[in-house]
Write a protein that binds this DNA or RNA. Structure first.
Lengths: 240, 240
DNA sequence: CGCTGGATTGAGTCCGGTCAAGCCTTGTGG
DNA sequence: CCACAAGGCTTGACCGGACTCAATCCAGCG
């Protein structure tokens, strides 16, 4: 299978000229809504640069390629009618995103910070076209996505403290950092991911800091002081 | 690929002798915890009968077969350490369950009401063993599961009213019933599925009835009076 | 040094959870 | 066939955690 260069998938490399919206204003997905040009430069092997908050693809676009984060971070999200935003997932360097279960993207993908993204391969919705290698990889990817989504369902049943603890541990694990976690995303991103309000997310973090479970040297830098305590908090887990 | 009859998967056909627990007592997954005998009768083609609340497989069991609901209804669920229960999904006649992404079941499966279940096929975790037909079907199945789980994440970001409206519409759609929905599951099941308390689930239904959006001729029978209103409620949905 | 956007903090409100009481349905046994 | 008991459902009162509104605070940058 080869990459379909005639694919209708397109994006705009929104360089600089940040939309500069306030914290409470419209979110990127809405603000940049229709404006996407046709700068398709998806040659395999050449990472593409996206500046902070730039869209990579948009919900409703036909599903095209799979992407790998080289540097930075990517979020997938969906704008809701009432102005709120739901974040599907964060993707860190080395992780692959863009896999979906139907013809059109259900979620948009946006750069959380300035990021480099690589087009990995195109995805065909038709199974018969796959070779074993490809199928196996895609299957693995699907499993991982499914797993994470399932965990998320559990997470959303918990309290704010538990969600935040969970989030911190997950990020720590995924970045491989033993002690200190570097969070690329804003409080609002975190809140939308965890299904909390911005204020609650922030409050909860400071609360955890007061309890000495974590330290916050800089607003995007978290030190996990009492990993065990956090883990206990996070794991409302299974009975036995 | 053939069915592995030596598989360690087992279940108990809990006929009659209902555990009869009160609404607030322990839930089946916990109550019937360890007691599962080895009555493996998984001959393909012969539906197996499970009485209300009987377990079909248990979380922690090695993943074995895929099952198809012939009659009745099945729920997958997970007991949490704090005594609460998380319901993963409901499966109605014609639907297939049992697919998971790892070696051991993350969720238990239980009959919601007296049900007939058919063993469809065994699942191998190793991709290479699949033939095209099998792979294609399993892929479709996985897509569907993933899709539903994703929708669920969205749902859990909404209010009680929205969740309930969503649930009713989903059930109506899945049963194909145009007007009247027959809900096989109890209020507690619904509540655990939607991440609400039993009381809130019940209250919300009566509230919707007062507003004439639905009617409740019997506690398990719901008539959708104002589908459009429900849909508007449910679909906090995407912007545009 | 002031500006801007993000983060924190506070006060007040409300939705949904908890506790508790009663109702209704179902099934069982006299 | 009726009476009673048990479980499930509904409803009420109250409470608390999370949301909202709003005022600072802080860091980065021109």
């Amino acid at each position: 299978m080869q990459i379909d260069l005639a694919s209708p998938l397109a994006w705009e490399v929104t360089r600089s000229s940040k939309p500069r919206q306030s914290q409470t204003e419209l979110i990127p997905s809405i603000a940049q809504g229709g404006k996407r040009a046709l700068h398709v430069v998806s040659r395999k092997g050449a990472p593409i640069e996206f500046s902070r908050n730039a869209g990579i693809y948009w919900e409703g676009d036909p599903v095209g390629q799979l992407y790998k984060v080289i540097s930075g971070a990517v979020r997938t999200c969906k704008a809701l009618a009432d102005g709120r935003r739901q974040i599907g997932a964060f993707y860190l360097p080395g992780e692959i995103f863009g896999l979906e279960t139907q013809a059109d993207h259900l979620l948009s993908a946006e750069a959380v910070v300035d990021s480099q993204v690589l087009v990995v391969k195109s995805q065909s919705s038709h199974f018969e076209h796959w070779d074993l290698q490809e199928a196996s990889e895609t299957w693995e990817l699907m499993r991982r996505e499914f797993r994470r989504t399932s965990d998320r369902v559990l997470l959303l049943g918990k309290t704010a403290r538990e969600r935040v603890a969970n989030f911190l541990l997950e990020m720590a694990e995924r970045t491989g950092s033993s002690e200190q976690v570097e969070l690329p995303m804003s409080r609002k991103d975190i809140a939308d991911y965890l299904g909390l309000s911005l204020e609650t997310a922030s409050r909860t973090l400071t609360q955890l800091e007061r309890e000495a479970a974590i330290a916050i040297p800089g607003s995007k830098r978290i030190v996990l002081r009492k990993r065990a305590a956090l883990r206990r908090l996070a794991e409302v887990g299974p009975l036995n």
